[in-house]
Amino acid sequence: MADEECANPLLLGWVKEWLDTARERNSKGFTVYRKAYDSLKSCPLPFQHPAEAQQLHGFGPKLCERLTDKLKLHCQTNGIPMPEVPRKVSKGRANADDGTAPAKPARKKKAYVPTLRSGPYALILALSTIPESAPSGITKQQTIELAQPYCDSSFTASSDPTKFYTAWNSMKTLLEKDLVAEKGRPLRKYCLTEEGYEVASRIKASQPAADPKQSTLDAPAAPPKSRQRAPAGPTLGAADDDGFMAINSSPPPPSLSEPQHDNGMGVGLEDIVPFGDVLGDETALPTFSPITIPTSAFTLELVLDVREVRAKEDRDYMRVELTKKGVAPIMRSLDLGDALWVAKCKDPQYLQRYGLEGDEIMLDWIVERKRLDDLVGSIKAQRKGLRQLCGV
């Protein structure tokens, strides 16, 4: 049967249009539109309103609602009055006539709305930048570049070193919900389906002022405090209201008259700079003689934290890889940082001759390996402590 011989050629033409679009995008909705198209084409009954098509196989409330919107637009464009929705016999009244209890109404399915700044949220906003009429989508790398500013988690690295899940795994959920269409082999490309564009519209309507650089959209960011830049060299300044210390700012001189208190990070100022009696002149400073250690008396050693692992099942990865590069690290538990360097004396009694203990001298280099998403997690968990004092 030709499309012109169908009892509802206008509705059939719109369904065919959506069917062709789903076929081009390799969408899962192709099967649904195919069933609706075949059943509507073979139906001999003319419909006054798209809502009557729900009795056909493949037509649901959502598809009939889309047809109704298309019919409204068609009537407005051509100056035709919109047909009224046909009356339906109430199921409850029919059941009452039969003497049976009325059936419970079906529970309305809740519209899918992703969590703010989550993986699906960022992916939908990124793919919504593609015009709906575009013939093809964008690659994974292009999608990640557009989505990362809208997400608090990383799309390339896991926030948990023991797991391999990233924000990109949310793409599987969007594919299962038929919000994103995937096509192309081996280079896969992604684009939103009709349902995906509807979700994107709901997101933009609820968050009209979406700022990709803002970490939270529900509260305005506090204005930054004015800080005076130091003339040279990075220095640590005073902690602000959130407990962060400003870098490249001049710390204010401590007042001896004011009592010392905790700065909100669990570390008092008295633990950073010892306070004592005010000295009148430089002659009152203590004198000391520097200890000079020849380079032949020590070796430079890398100390690596034993908790710095790649994965729970691969704890020796970093040590093995460093050893392959010719660096055999000393493994021990570190209270600060993930790696540091020490000068280890070849003679264990060398420092004792100068009244010192041990055989190592810690050098002024500490490394804290931290990804941006991991740093955000540490701040949220308030695992800041001394790391703030070191500017990491």
Results as ranks from 00 to 15, higher is better:
residue 33 Y to T: 09
residue 27 S to W: 05
residue 295 T to K: 03
residue 346 K to P: 07
residue 21 T to F: 08
residue 159 S to I: 12
residue 332 R to L: 01
residue 94 A to N: 04
residue 295 T to R: 05
residue 262 D to F: 10
residue 355 G to H: 05
residue 239 A to L: 14
residue 3 D to C: 09
residue 340 L to G: 09
residue 313 E to S: 09
residue 79 G to A: 00
residue 233 G to N: 10
residue 293 I to C: 10
residue 1 M to S: 01
residue 163 K to G: 07
residue 292 T to Q: 03
residue 379 I to T: 02
residue 205 A to M: 10
residue 205 A to T: 13
residue 72 K to L: 14
residue 201 S to K: 15
residue 385 G to C: 04
residue 161 P to E: 13
residue 159 S to N: 07
residue 257 S to V: 05
residue 138 I to W: 11
residue 164 F to L: 07
residue 6 C to F: 07
residue 128 S to L: 12
residue 56 L to C: 03
residue 129 T to A: 12
residue 237 G to Q: 04
residue 390 C to I: 14
residue 272 I to Y: 03
residue 347 D to C: 02
residue 141 Q to M: 01
residue 318 M to G: 00
residue 329 P to H: 00
residue 389 L to N: 13
residue 240 D to H: 13
residue 83 P to W: 09
residue 246 A to V: 11
residue 25 R to V: 10
residue 107 R to I: 15
residue 154 S to H: 03
residue 342 V to Q: 06
residue 209 A to M: 13
residue 90 S to E: 03
residue 362 M to C: 09
residue 84 E to A: 08
residue 113 V to K: 04
residue 293 I to A: 09
residue 199 V to N: 09
residue 184 G to L: 02
residue 128 S to Q: 12
residue 200 A to C: 03
residue 79 G to Q: 01
residue 37 Y to V: 03
residue 328 A to D: 10
residue 392 V to E: 14
residue 2 A to Y: 04
residue 364 D to V: 00
residue 197 Y to R: 12
residue 236 L to N: 14
residue 321 E to I: 10
residue 271 D to R: 11
residue 354 Y to I: 02
residue 285 L to N: 11
residue 108 K to C: 04
residue 359 D to A: 13
residue 349 Q to T: 15
residue 242 D to H: 11
residue 151 C to E: 06
residue 184 G to Y: 06
residue 264 G to E: 12
residue 116 L to F: 04
residue 315 R to I: 06
residue 53 A to Y: 00
residue 335 D to N: 05
residue 95 N to Q: 15
residue 81 P to W: 06
residue 200 A to H: 05
residue 145 E to S: 14
residue 288 F to M: 07
residue 1 M to G: 11
residue 198 E to D: 01
residue 218 D to N: 14
residue 180 V to T: 01
residue 170 S to K: 08
residue 31 T to M: 08
residue 233 G to D: 09
residue 265 M to P: 11
residue 384 K to G: 07
residue 204 K to P: 02
residue 247 I to G: 09
residue 266 G to Q: 00
residue 100 T to I: 15
residue 342 V to R: 06
residue 337 G to Q: 10
residue 305 D to L: 02
residue 71 L to M: 15
residue 246 A to Y: 10
residue 106 A to W: 12
residue 127 L to V: 09
residue 238 A to R: 04
residue 321 E to L: 11
residue 132 E to R: 10
residue 24 E to Y: 02
residue 223 P to W: 02
residue 342 V to P: 00
residue 129 T to W: 08
residue 114 P to T: 08
residue 317 Y to L: 02
residue 170 S to L: 03
residue 213 K to Y: 14
residue 128 S to P: 14
residue 312 K to Q: 05
residue 323 T to L: 06
residue 339 A to G: 13
residue 364 D to I: 07
residue 320 V to N: 01
residue 243 G to A: 02
residue 356 L to W: 00
